[in-house]
Each structure stands twice: as C-alpha cells, then as structure tokens.
C-alpha cells in the first residue's frame, strides 16, 4: 500500500499493452526499484487520470514484484479510458487491497482452480505461484470456461502451464467446428473430475451464477464448503472499508474480501436482494 496515504495514487508508467480479446487488454506497469509486492487474489484501484478509479484484480506473477500486471475489460467509463492508453502513458495505482487466495492451505494437497471469463485474471497469480514451487502441491487442475474460443484469455500461456505440471481443461459455451476442445459449461467439467475431498482446496472466480452452480457441483462431489474459496465482485470505491459501496451485510468486500470462504458466503449468493 502507498506509504503516505491510502488515498494517494502512485503514478506508474505503462511498459506494455497487449490486446487479449476484442474487449479485454493487459497492461504491464513498471513499479520501479521498490517493486510491487502483492498476494494472489488482491486488487488495485487504478486511476485513469481525469476520469476516475476502478477496482482491478492483479493478474501478474507474485514472484516477480518488478512488474505489475492488470488484465482489464473495457466495460465502463474508467476501463474504456484505460483502454485508450498505450505504452508510456501513466495511470495511478492504489493498493494492493483485499484478502488473498489461501494458496498455503493447499500445500501438500490438491488444488482445483475454477475460472469463468475474466475470472481467470485474479487466479493467474495462483498458477504462477504454484508453478514456481510445483513439487509442493499434489494434483493441480485448472478448469476454465469462456463464451467462445475468441474470448479465451492467456491462450499462449496454457501450454506452458500444462508443461509445468498443471492439468488444464478449457470449455466454451459455443463454438464452430474449428474448435477441437470442450463445449459446455464450467460446472459440467467438475462432474468429470476425480476429486479427493479430504485433500482438495478449490478456488473459484467468475460470474456469480457460475460460482453458485460450481459450489453445488463441488458439494455433490463431496467437497466441503470450508475447502472452497470464491472471489466476489462488488462496486468498490474507497477500497479501505469506509465508504460502504461494496458492503455485503456486515462485511466490506474490499477489505474482508474479495476472496472469502464459500461456507461464509454461500447463503448470501442465493439471496436475490443481495
């Protein structure tokens, strides 16, 4: 976090911009000599100068604090402004904020990473972390779903993950005949897995409906909700638990989340007024 004030954005230059899909892009920022330490699952508030801030999860490698990476979907005023920036431009950064994926809890056991759409971005740091110390984990599986083959993120990296000892299964909602992979929903991939409930930790990130169905599928496979963690998305403004924009009952998603244990949040996911 910025040493002087949690409200003061730190200006960082864009070192590289890569277009991932039609509406999603990745910015690599250079934090300078002091680096940028974070834990997988945390997010930053990114300031498009003169426009505003948006909460964006960190999608880079936690073992490489010399770079800070964000994958952003251009859907709102701020993210559309960020999409216009190119190499050399500056953005303001506040963070890192929020809770992290409990990767340490999976040491010595199996890790099941389930992502849908842009939900792979906050989980990619977990994959990097695992690859850096692969021998310390048992089976590591990534299940990833997207709308179509053209909407898949990080496709150039998936083979490297497989080579590194991670089992990767990708599915899309719809495809043409040039797609040779799976077609279907992410929860249906869970049905085909061999899961040892006593030694598996599951990390889930994606649209809330997808996460609800994944939680049910995991429960059917015997995985207790206290071994499942999800990342929530809410409208964050201050990011330090003061303004209440991201309040979820007695919790603030920005500081008590975004990563929360499923048994603590599952009843709320089924409440339509929340």
């Amino acid at each position: 976090m910025s040493a002087a004030s949690p409200w003061l954005p730190r200006p960082l230059a864009i070192a590289e911009r890569a277009q991932e899909t039609a509406d999603t892009f990745t910015l690599r920022l250079e934090p300078g000599d002091c680096g940028f330490a974070f834990a997988p699952g945390q997010f930053n508030m990114i300031y498009a100068f003169g426009v505003g801030e948006a909460a964006i999860s960190i999608s880079g490698d936690p073992t490489r604090p010399e770079t800070l990476v964000h994958t952003i979907r251009a859907v709102g005023t701020v993210t559309r402004a960020l999409a216009t920036l190119d190499r050399g431009a500056a953005v303001g950064i506040r963070g890192p904020y929020g809770s992290a994926w409990p990767v340490e809890h999976a040491l010595g056991g199996d890790l099941l990473i389930i992502a849908g759409g842009l939900g792979l971005a906050p989980l990619r740091p977990v994959v990097y972390d695992v690859l850096a110390r692969r021998a310390l984990f048992g089976h590591v599986v990534v299940l990833y779903g997207a709308r179509s083959p053209a909407d898949l993120l990080y496709t150039r990296e998936l083979d490297a993950w497989i080579d590194g000892g991670v089992h990767v299964q990708v599915t899309v909602d719809h495809a043409g005949t040039d797609w040779v992979g799976s077609v279907g929903t992410v929860p249906s991939l869970i049905d085909g897995l061999v899961i040892d409930p006593a030694r598996t930790i599951a990390l889930v990130c994606g649209p809330e409906v997808m996460m609800r169905f994944c939680l049910r599928a995991l429960a059917t496979r015997g995985l207790a909700a206290d071994r499942v963690h999800v990342s929530l998305e809410r409208n964050m403004k201050c990011a330090v638990g003061l303004c209440g924009h991201c309040q979820l009952r007695e919790s603030f998603v920005c500081k008590d989340g975004p990563v929360v244990r499923a048994d603590r949040i599952a009843p709320l996911l089924d409440r339509r007024e929340i």
């Binding site: 849908g116 779903g145 279907g184 409906v209």
Partner: peptide, 14 residues
C-alpha cells in the same frame, strides 16, 4: 437442461 439454461444466460457477456 440445467447446462443449456446456463449457456443461455450468456454469463460471460457484458
């Protein structure tokens, strides 16, 4: 049917 409903939701759309 459950899977088809999920697909119809177009969960990953804007």
């Amino acid at each position: 049917l459950e899977r088809v409903r999920l697909q119809r939701l177009d969960l990953y759309g804007v």
